[in-house]
């Protein structure tokens, strides 16, 4: 009874207000219990909102156009509020003018790499009994990272591998772990004295699966590190940078990107090219004499084109350990703990 009354009530109101603008008093469609009517109402609401948005955008564009025509400054564009730009205040954000930061950078574990005293030599291995997917992942890594060598894991313990690699002057070890035949963890151990970063690895896409993927050359890649802002992030960025040789071969036009967004580090590998493109000229309609002139005046536009080479994957830091790998007696510089996740707007990298 009550249900029907309520429905009739809303419908009746609807009919009354059909001609009017959308009123704010109208109850949400979620209160309607009949699914058919509810979905109809939803569809109506959605189209209304869409139209309104269209109108608003049109108005805004018109104002902007007018301002440009009049030679005035266009009204400032509004910036949407996102989780990143409303991030909680973080005192650990590294500032480039901080003398202590520079002092630490000059003496930390990666300073030898950044002073070009050592060239990176990587040892890549898997967990014991790894799956074929992990082997494929490692094969992709070997294509991306120069000076990387795959070693079969065998039955060696990580501490033994660390000792072995240290004696052979490797600068880092990467160990890929898997679960359910998918790679799901990455351990990066900087040598000779750490630190050790443990990442969760997800969203791995092989190059083959990327549409229109390119084949990378063997040139040394350029490196882009985005948004490593805090002290932990800075240290992590330096660690990731120390995996790649310092002097990129710009002829190769290869770029490797580590992009941090909300503590997730996205790995991408691209090839880029600058192409000259002539602007569409209207010379076809005019005669030959004017064609010459137009050729002279036609502008050559440079465009950059990007081709992804792959692979893609995402990393999330689980822990950063002081020194080389030691799960039993080791000290941590940073560990992710449950009580850190009390706010969506708090980030650590």
């Amino acid at each position: 009874m009550g249900k029907r009354n309520h429905l009739e009530h809303t419908e009746g109101r609807d009919q009354d207000e059909k001609g009017d603008e959308m009123s704010t008093k109208k109850p949400f469609p979620s209160y309607i219990k009949n699914k058919l009517i509810r979905s109809l109402q939803y569809a109506k609401l959605k189209t209304q909102k869409k139209n309104q948005k269209k109108i608003r955008r049109k108005e805004r564009d018109a104002v902007e156009k007018q301002a440009v025509q009049l030679g005035e400054a266009a009204p400032p564009r509004r910036v949407p509020r996102t989780i990143e730009n409303t991030r909680e205040y973080d005192e650990t954000v590294a500032r480039p003018d901080d003398d202590e930061l520079l002092a630490e950078d000059a003496v930390d574990e990666f300073s030898a790499h950044f002073n070009s005293e050592v060239t990176p030599q990587l040892l890549i291995t898997s967990s014991r009994w790894c799956s074929t997917m992990t082997i494929k992942f490692i094969a992709e890594l070997l294509r991306v990272i120069p000076n990387a060598h795959y070693y079969k894991r065998g039955s060696y313990e990580i501490k033994q591998i660390v000792k072995y690699a240290r004696n052979r002057n490797f600068t880092a070890i990467i160990i890929i772990h898997d679960n359910r035949k998918e790679p799901n963890g990455m351990l990066i151990i900087s040598l000779p004295d750490g630190p050790t970063a443990h990442f969760k690895l997800s969203n791995f896409v092989r190059s083959k699966k990327i549409k229109g993927h390119g084949k990378p050359t063997t040139h040394l890649p350029e490196l882009i590190l985005n948004n490593f802002t805090t002290r932990i992030g800075h240290r992590l960025g330096r660690m990731l940078a120390s995996l790649f040789p310092r002097q990129p071969n710009f002829r190769g036009r290869r770029v490797v990107t580590f992009h941090n967004q909300r503590d997730f580090i996205f790995f991408r590998h691209h090839r880029y090219i600058f192409e000259e493109k002539e602007e569409a000229s209207r010379s076809s309609n005019t005669n030959k004499g004017s064609e010459k002139k137009s050729k002279k005046s036609s502008k050559v536009k440079m465009i950059a084109r990007l081709q992804e080479c792959g692979p893609r994957f995402t990393l999330k830091l689980i822990s950063l350990q002081h020194g080389t790998f030691d799960s039993k007696y080791g000290e941590y510089e940073w560990v992710h703990k449950a009580d850190m996740d009390t706010s969506r707007r708090r980030f650590f990298i």
Binding site: H322, E331, Y332, E333, W334, V335, H336, K337, D339, F348
Partner: peptide
């Protein structure tokens, strides 16, 4: 004692 202690 809690205070988001993240390191050793």
């Amino acid at each position: 004692y809690k205070g988001r202690i993240s390191g050793s």
